[in-house]
Write a protein that binds this DNA or RNA. Structure first.
Lengths: 230, 230
DNA sequence: CGCGATTTGTGCACCACTTCACAAGCGCCT
DNA sequence: AGGCGCTTGTGAAGTGGTGCACAAATCGCG
């Protein structure tokens, strides 16, 4: 499940706060989910909770880290050390949550040789050797959209089987390779949509929650808005 | 729907490629979704497609931008100009997709006054005034987890009603305020999970796809793994 | 003017996920 | 030792999203 990492983070917070055990209710609150959902998720791990008491925090952390494959630190390759790549290379959250950025790679010869956070940027032509040397299974793409597909192809042919893509484009990869996409602008656009919806609702009569916005007549669109209220 | 921004991006790509119309099949491929799903999504906008032809690209872009509330450029405030905040402040993808970073804010007096990408960092105590002056409705939190809740409270009290949170923690906000969370480490952990699953499957007998991993006996856990195969 | 090719819009069945509610189990207190 | 309160684990109902398959509609061509 995609929620396990969130539980894991919440558990670490609780552990550092000195809690030995935690109830499903408490952990659910810390992770921001429903307690029944959390119990069902954990039960899929064949989990160890004690009725009347709760879950052993340390044990549960071990269980989840095992399921997530975080028992040993995973090496990742970061391709593209532009604006975003720089930040990702220096992001402490990766190191503290089970990952090690093992290689920085870029196609621009100007950038090759630069040292970021104790790691030297290498050229993307070396990718296959780097991936093999460092046993890298996960690649992160932080390039412009135009280069992303080519980079993905090179990552896959170098042996990477999971890709985290920050470029705003869809990647096509062979079966067996997992891709997750993070598009920062899309997140903002979704918020913008909610803003627009809220603004449309303000002071308008209820439309029965029929759809996406509060516009009468089913979303007429720009330029076709009519007077409201009668 | 949360997929509209993805459609919008694909449409812009198609428009720049010179396409005037596009079929649901073609747009679905460009956006990486099922064509039936796309048609259903667009039909919820009361949409304008012509049977036998497809969708008018320019018209559809206008429609979606309207629904997303992107007809005018939205101002956002970015709180926290550390590693990640710097990158976000310089990220060109925001400007090109309908957003304007109208303010950079930080709590650290050392950082106040610094100029990033033509914008001067201001102190968080000025937040209320800044939000009002710039008509900001969306805030982005790029601070450490420890400061995030406090920042969120200040954003809300300053009048912000949508928050994009990059800090690894859950925020509690009053009703009516929307929060989206992006946790970079969690994305990697999900990929790690898939890696672990793939590794467990390799060369093992099929377990019927019963659950999360290929371990027999229902995910025994670390230290309790048994011999496999008989 | 009519026909066929093509594509949208949508009814319907299906599936996965969520949530409620409760029985089973555990520890503590008397 | 027994009962009581608390918490997990799970059956079952409710919900929403997904995808198929097809009718309706439009265009181009003869």
């Amino acid at each position: 499940m995609a929620r396990l990492p969130e539980y894991l983070r919440a558990l670490h917070v609780l552990a550092e706060a000195g809690n030995d055990t935690v109830s499903s209710e408490g952990l659910a609150a810390a992770a921001g989910v429903n307690s029944a959902k959390l119990r069902k998720d954990l039960s899929h791990l064949g989990s160890y909770g004690t009725r009347g008491v709760g879950y052993d925090v340390a044990l549960l952390i071990d269980q989840i880290e095992f399921v997530l494959g975080l028992t040993q630190r995973r090496a990742v390759a970061l391709v593209g050390v532009g604006n975003l790549g720089h930040a990702l290379a220096g992001y402490a959250g990766f190191a503290s949550r089970g990952f090690r950025i093992a290689a920085l790679v870029d196609a621009d010869p100007e950038r090759v040789g630069e040292e970021i956070n104790g790691l030297v940027v290498r050229h993307i032509d070396e990718l296959t050797r780097i991936v093999a040397e460092e046993s890298i299974a996960i690649g992160v793409i932080a390039t412009p959209a135009g280069a992303a597909q080519s980079v993905a192809d090179q990552l896959v042919s170098a042996g990477v089987t999971s890709i985290l893509n920050f470029a705003p484009c869809v990647l096509s990869v062979p079966e067996g390779v997992d891709v997750r996409k993070v598009d920062l602008a899309i997140e903002l656009q979704i918020l913008s949509f909610h803003e627009h919806r809220k603004a449309s609702l303000t002071g308008l009569p209820a439309t029965g929650g029929s759809g996406l916005t509060a516009l009468p007549g089913g979303l007429a669109g720009p330029g076709t808005q009519e007077a409201v209220g009668s």
